[in-house]
Design a protein around this nucleic acid. Structure first.
Length: 191
DNA sequence: ATTACGATCCACT
DNA sequence: GTGGATCGTAATG
């Protein structure tokens, strides 16, 4: 369980509280829990890098909704990525879950990620994290405070480093928005 | 109806 | 370290 008010703030602030947080998902096969080590913030309509930059569309409806819900999308023709919606309803901002460490359900996560040989690779990268957790597009819009999900924020804010985001280019691009955050020294963070 | 593009991963060198 | 795969979304004709 988590305090929803804690998520009703801009994504670049919420991102710092999500580092070190744990996210669980139950399925018929069991439960997998991931400790988040790398995240990236997107500030909705103000942000050229955000899917919500051009306003409310069918896909981005969830992002404009209540914080604490899951925003999933399909990209590059083959991958699913997951975000935690932040900011109050009517404001679109979200935090992309970029990487984490599997802390529960290791066997199940390995079974879902047969291509990765090392445990550190199980949830390193947005699409991999989603597969290890067992999240699908159908989970889009789900409330992370209810089954099968369970999100727990850390009681003490984790150490963090910040850097430019990937994939955001052009004017008003990555240089102005150092909103990629990670926990220093973690093996589950991409270079 | 059509088309350009992307918040990436994996196999291979 | 690099290149190819692959399709939903949203803007355009």
């Amino acid at each position: 369980m988590f305090d929803r008010e804690a998520l009703a703030r801009p994504a670049n602030e919420v991102a710092l509280d999500l580092l070190g947080a744990t996210l669980s998902r139950d399925s018929e096969e069991g439960r997998v829990t991931i400790r988040l080590t790398e995240v990236e913030a997107y500030l909705g309509e103000m942000d050229p890098g955000s899917h919500a930059f051009r306003g409310l569309t069918k896909r981005t409806t969830v992002m404009f909704g209540e914080p604490g819900h899951l925003y999933t999308y399909f990209t590059y023709g083959m991958h699913v990525c997951a975000n935690v919606v932040c900011s109050p309803p009517g404001t679109a901002s979200a935090v992309l879950l970029r990487g984490g460490e599997v802390v529960e359900g290791l066997e199940l996560a390995r079974a879902r990620r047969t291509t990765s040989r090392s445990d550190a690779d199980l949830a390193r990268g947005p699409a991999r994290l989603v597969v290890a957790l067992g999240v699908t597009l159908a989970d889009g819009g789900a409330d992370l405070a209810t089954s099968p999900f369970d999100l727990t924020l850390p009681t003490v804010r984790a150490d963090h480093d910040a850097g430019p985001r990937t994939g955001v280019s052009g004017e008003g691009g990555s240089a102005e928005y150092p909103w990629r955050f990670w926990i220093p020294g973690e093996r589950t963070v991409s270079p």
